[in-house]
């Protein structure tokens, strides 16, 4: 009989079997049926005659059956679990739908769009993705999975908006939205539909009674001051002086004299 050890037994017990090993074949058991399937679907005399029925699609039934017998791991390998996977994902997305960002009383949702926010803190910087919510008073990016507001600003702090086309690391061109906030802070966003987002944001700001500034005054090129190291607009450094330490460029000195 079958001398191979039962997988359930501790190894030191099963290896002591001193019986003569005889081949096993009993396809009531799951294991040998798999052995049979391996042979019956992949092997045997192959006919290369044009009288043979095309066997397209045939291996599929074999694969299915094999997958059922072989257990979960193989099932995943063969994609049999896909149905179940789809169900799980649907359940997950249903569940997360109920987790909406809490709005303040009287606040109205204008737009919800998938997007990401360029997060920077020290040496750490990354694009954090989630849903961007635009309400009549706020703009925020919310990650449902972590129930976290990654970024949030009242819309009346947005002073200017511009879209910059940039090549992303995937090699595709991507629209990056730059929002210039009060206090010269720049926020970088990337959204699913840039045009729509920009329009809605602009009209919301307008409705809130604010006007947007021209972008160019925010877009000044900056350079570090050679004397004190502060980041200052290039124009200011070259044509006037450093507003912090009073450093004056050589050209400017010459001009003055």
């Amino acid at each position: 009989m079958f001398a191979s050890p039962d997988p359930g037994l501790p190894t030191h017990l099963c290896n002591r079997a001193k019986r003569q090993m005889e081949p096993e074949r009993d396809w009531k058991g799951r294991a040998t049926l798999v052995d049979l399937l391996d042979r019956i679907f992949d092997k045997g005399v192959v006919l290369y005659a044009d009288v043979i029925i095309s066997v397209a699609g045939i291996p599929l039934i074999g694969v299915n059956l094999r997958a059922v017998l072989a257990g979960m791991e193989t099932m995943l390998e063969y994609g049999v679990m896909q149905d179940m996977d789809v169900k799980t994902r649907m359940w997950e997305s249903q569940k997360s739908k109920t987790k909406e960002v809490p709005l303040i009383k009287g606040e109205e949702l204008v737009l919800k769009m998938y997007g990401s926010y360029h997060y920077k803190s020290g040496i750490y910087n990354a694009w954090k993705s989630g849903h961007i919510y635009l309400t009549n008073t706020r703009l925020l990016l919310y990650q449902k999975e972590f129930n976290e507001k990654v970024f949030e600003t009242p819309i009346d702090r947005i002073k200017a908006i511009t879209v910059i086309r940039q090549t992303s690391f995937t090699g595709k061109d991507k629209n990056i939205i730059h929002l210039y906030l009060q206090g010269k802070k720049v926020v970088r966003l990337s959204v699913h539909d840039t045009e729509k987002f920009k329009q809605e944001l602009e009209s919301s700001i307008e409705k809130a009674g604010m006007t947007l500034d021209e972008v160019n005054q925010y877009e000044e090129e900056k350079e570090t001051c050679p004397q004190c190291g502060i980041l200052a607009p290039v124009k200011e450094l070259l044509e006037k002086e450093c507003s912090k330490c009073g450093w004056v460029s050589i050209t400017q000195k010459k001009n003055k004299s």
Binding site: I40, V45, L47, I53, G62
Partner: peptide, 8 residues
Amino acid sequence: PLGFDTII
């Protein structure tokens, strides 16, 4: 032996 579903 031939494999399963070989039909002439």
